[in-house]
Structures are given as C-alpha cells and as structure tokens.
Amino acid sequence: MDASAVPTLFDWAGGQVAIRRLIDKFYDRVEADALLSPFFPGGVTEDHREHVSRWWAEVFGGPAVYTERLGGYERMLAHHRGLDITGEQRLRFVTTMSRAADDAGLPDDPEFRAALVGYLEWATRLALANSQPNAQPPPQAPVPRWGWGVAPPYQP
C-alpha cells in the first residue's frame, strides 16, 4: 500500500466527533469506577473531556490543537505529576478505554485496535512513571504522533 494513501488513526477512527465520543464513553465509565473515579472528585468536567479529546485527536494524527492552544506535552505532564498512579489503576485505565472504544463504535478491525492498545500501553506506562513522587520526566517533549505500527489498515 502506498504510504501516502494510508489514513491516519484519527481519520480511520472517524475524526474529531468519534474521538470525542470515545472520550465521553471513557469518562462515563471512569465516573462509575471505584478505582479511577477518585482522580475526579465531583466528576469529569466538560473542559477536561474536551481537552483530552483534543490530545487524543492530535496523537492519532489529527489537528495539533492541544499543542497550539492547550499547552502541549508540558501541560499534559503537569496534569499527571504527583498523582502516584498505581499499576492496578494503570491497567484499569487501559481496559476501560478499550471498552469505551467498543461503546463509542470505533473501528474494531485488529489493526486499528492494535494501534489503540499500543498507544494505551505506552502512554499509561509513562503516566504511571511520571506520576510518582520522585519522578523526573523530561521537561519538554513533543506530543507523540501515533501511527499504525507494523500493520496498516487492511484494505483488499
């Protein structure tokens, strides 16, 4: 397949509307989860949902709104510092997001889901490490631009 013809994960998922639906379904589940809801006393705000959907859109190859308007990597890092995330919470985040992808009707082809779970594993392991009391993450980095990895979308 010609690399220029390969859609971004953002486009394959359905664009900003689909990403926002994913984030809403995820945080709806988080608010009902005893292990994750303590991170959001009083619930997950509309602003938080919008900002996270912009992050995910950018990571998956969509517009760079999070970087341009919301502070980029440094801002995302600041939100996770000092949270002291546990391994159990990290894993629950991953499985909850995977279930939210089902709830949101995101594509369920193996290639897309492998890329989604690949990003979840990578990002949550960084968030866990960066959230620890003595963490010393790099102060600056670009927002990652996640791709298909080894398996682009199957198109006969």
Rank of each mutant, 00 (worst) to 15 (best):
A78C: 06
G43N: 07
V44S: 05
S98P: 08
A100R: 07
E74H: 10
A57R: 05
G87C: 10
T86K: 09
G72L: 09
T96F: 01
E58V: 01
D102K: 07
Q89N: 04
M76Y: 04
W55Y: 12
D47V: 14
D103L: 07
E74F: 06
I85S: 06
G72W: 11
H79R: 14
R92F: 03
P63M: 08
F60C: 13
A57I: 03
Y73L: 05
R81F: 00
T45L: 02
G105C: 13
L70I: 05
T67R: 04
P63F: 10
H80P: 02
R92S: 05
G71C: 13
R92Y: 04
T86R: 11
T95R: 12
G87N: 13
H80I: 08
G82I: 07
D109P: 07
V44M: 08
T67I: 08
Y66K: 13
F93Y: 07
W56E: 06
T45P: 00
R49G: 04
R92N: 06
R92L: 07
S98L: 15
R90Y: 08
E58T: 05
L83H: 05
E88H: 09
H80Y: 04
H51Q: 13
A57Y: 00
L70H: 14
V59S: 11
P107M: 09
A57K: 02
L77A: 15
S53P: 01
P107H: 01
T67V: 09
Y73G: 06
A101Q: 05
A57S: 15
A104E: 06
H48M: 12
G72I: 07
A78Q: 08
E68A: 15
M76T: 08
I85W: 02
R92C: 03
R69A: 15
G87H: 00
A101H: 04
R75I: 01
M97F: 12
E46Y: 09
S98I: 15
A100W: 03
L91Q: 15
V52P: 00
H79Y: 10
E50F: 12
W55P: 00
W56A: 15
R90A: 13
G43K: 04
A104L: 04
T96S: 12
D109K: 00
A64G: 09
D84K: 14
V52N: 02
L83I: 02
H48Y: 12
R49V: 13
R90L: 14
D102M: 06
Q89W: 00
R92T: 03
D103Y: 04
G87S: 02
G105V: 12
L77M: 10
